[in-house]
């Protein structure tokens, strides 16, 4: 097996990088520049009527002064630039975690949460289980139990064990089960 295959398998799956969309916008802008340049050539050679846009744009800047309006626009451009620098430098987001029991099985937080939820839902004494939160670091399940008091605490304890046992082999780091708060009508 090639090292390229090994490297690709070792890298965790990542979401589409933000810079990909910006790259498409930059590419489209470059194509737009080509269209303007060819149009300006056609106008300057008399093949089409009008005024070259680049020349008109440069001459429109003549006499410009650093007024508050210009500085406001420039500050906005600078802020957009900083955002672009950040977008380009930050790595792509990771959405999946590696299973501890299978090397090449990766699960999203929502998949982990569903597996944990269904394990809790099958637990004795549980009336309903709902995913309250699912992230790569933590899965939180809200549980409604049939009993109250110490019996409910026992049911929750049992549900915690089941949720942990279900989601940990898939790579979940922290699985929490809590009693659901009663919704007021």
């Amino acid at each position: 097996m090639s090292t390229r295959t090994e490297r690709a398998l070792a890298r965790p799956p990542v979401a589409r990088h933000r810079a990909a969309a910006i790259g498409v916008v930059i590419a489209l802008t470059l194509v737009g520049v080509a269209v303007v340049a060819v149009r300006d050539l056609a106008v300057s050679q008399g093949w089409a009527a009008g005024e070259p846009w680049l020349g008109a744009g440069v001459r429109a800047l003549d006499g410009l002064e650093p007024t508050p309006g210009v500085l406001t626009v420039a500050t906005g451009i600078g802020a957009a630039g900083l955002l672009l620098v950040l977008a380009g430098l930050l790595p792509a987001g990771r959405r999946h975690v590696r299973a501890t029991d299978a090397e090449h099985l990766w699960s999203s937080p929502s998949a982990l949460a569903e597996v944990a939820r269904s394990a809790v839902d099958r637990s004795q004494g549980v009336v309903a289980a709902r995913v309250a939160r699912a992230s790569r670091g933590r899965v939180l399940i809200d549980v409604a139990t049939r009993d109250e008091g110490s019996a409910a605490a026992g049911t929750l304890q049992q549900a915690r064990g089941l949720a942990d046992g279900a989601a940990t082999p898939l790579g979940a780091r922290r699985v929490e089960v809590r009693a659901a708060e009663e919704e007021s009508a």
Partner: peptide, 20 residues
């Protein structure tokens, strides 16, 4: 894409700094 994004961002920041 990432290189182009960072380069464009730095160019825009430079424009803003020049204006100030």
């Amino acid at each position: 894409d990432r290189f182009a994004t960072v380069a464009l961002g730095l160019a825009l920041v430079a424009v803003a700094l020049l204006a100030w």
